[in-house]
Design a binder for these strands. Structure first.
Lengths: 255, 255
DNA sequence: GCAAAAGTGTTAGTCCTACACCCATGG
DNA sequence: CCATGGGTGTAGGACTAACACTTTTGC
């Protein structure tokens, strides 16, 4: 913690960051059959915010986003995609020179937060079970929130979440969304719930299974999922090679 | 022209623009059955560049892009979509403090162009026949180039064009691409050629027509296209209301 | 043994594909 | 009058949507 504060101090004081440019990450995870977003709860105001950061002078946006992802989740190698820039001058208009969520004793460039920012929105897909959620210096808590919870986000952060979800829907056939959001081994009902959640509507259990299997992108494993009541479903894993190839063409069908 | 120089002078000297942030527009037009991009030829070096500009302190990126579009094409109300941010620090690394394409007598902030820029890529769809192509202060010519011509673009501008085309392909079912690229009245073969160009492959004439008509998004008009040899095709126009509604669902099919 | 969840199968209808045929126009 | 491009039609096959039946599991 001390180290982080020191880092922040160094960063802002030496003007390591570019002015005006920030990025925010909508980190999606899937748990309990629900699509969730990793959020920060800010100190003092207790408002919710997306994990984000500023662009350093010598890095690409992708590198900056990976840096943020690593710090909040502990993970490397995360699936990450830029999806939109938010540039309304009014979006940061209400930012005071020294936002409430900054500790008095935290050294920083007084003007930095008062500047106008455009923010580049990224969405990330992670395996919920592998994430070690870690707050940043401005936050007291880092936690998963259901995407339907819209309350108490700062600035336009909930709008960013909604936009990310919409993009996710549109790219469902072209991005390895299932692969990145589910654990290595998963059941067909879990995969289906994921698709249903993203699409926002229910799918026929039997048709879903047949279609997914027709793509030949899954390897069927031995039974499991003993925990649940009722008949235990099979476990599957993605055949990554075939999955990638199929996505390049776009998974066909009417979903 | 004199007026423009004055504007530029005022702008740079008063620091009207945000540092580090630019935007570039891939302006697509369709003519002679070919997909074209509006390009600038820079003074001195005669290199090609995309129309672009810088973000003013009090405007959104959309407003900035519309400003650029208006200046280069004379058109308002252009279909415009942000599609990607280009942020590699090396992309502007080769920019000298005073680029060759700047006239000696053109006043500007000496450091401005030497800064690192991220650029936000927009693509625009315009009716070729309505564009009045106008160069900016750095250019001697503004002209349409075929998208296959890749030679002599500055920085990563041709990469931006390729990425724009790829996005166009992916969004073909969800954006009013036909409506914005074609003149108000057009023939079925023209519409087909547009689709073929964007998709990069040929389509069956008869199946194409049947499918497009099945969407009920076109109004059939009287004959015409007298100029061409052979049988004269019908003219159509878009039924904008139905088109918009259909796009929200996404035009179905396997294209 | 019963309710609920999961595996497997069937069928009718729709959509796509790949063609064949005729009509209009300009050289 | 014929080559070329444009308008219209049709048959086979693939895919989808909707639904029935059986199997497994925990209470």
């Amino acid at each position: 913690m001390t180290k982080k504060i020191t880092l922040a101090k160094t960063s802002f004081e030496t003007k390591e960051f570019l002015d005006h440019i920030s990025l925010d990450c909508v980190i999606f995870g899937f748990h309990d059959n629900e699509l969730k977003v990793l959020t920060l709860q800010l100190k003092r105001t207790l408002e919710n915010a997306l994990p984000g950061g500023f662009l350093k002078k010598e890095e690409t946006l992708e590198e900056a986003a990976k840096r943020v992802l690593k710090e909040r989740t502990g993970l490397d190698q995360i699936f990450l995609k830029q999806f939109k820039v938010f540039s309304d001058p009014l979006r940061s208009k209400n930012n005071p020179q020294k936002p409430d969520y900054i500790d008095d004793d935290l050294p920083y460039d007084l003007d930095f937060f008062a500047k106008r920012f455009i923010t580049i929105g990224y969405y990330a897909l992670v395996d919920f079970t592998k994430v070690n959620a870690t707050p940043d210096v401005f936050s007291q808590k880092c936690e998963w929130k259901n995407i339907t919870e819209s309350s108490n986000y700062i600035l336009d952060h909930y709008e960013i979440i909604r936009d990310a979800l919409e993009v996710l829907r549109l790219q469902l056939r072209h991005q390895p969304i299932g692969y990145n959001l589910l654990p290595d081994k998963f059941t067909m009902p879990e995969l289906q719930k994921l698709y249903e959640t993203i699409l926002g509507r229910e799918l026929d259990r039997r048709n879903f299974q047949r279609k997914i299997l027709s793509y030949k992108i899954l390897n069927k494993l031995g039974e499991r999922k003993k925990g649940g009541a009722h008949k235990s479903p099979f476990l599957y894993e993605f055949n990554l090679e075939k999955y990638q190839k199929a996505l390049n063409e776009g998974l066909s069908g009417t979903w």
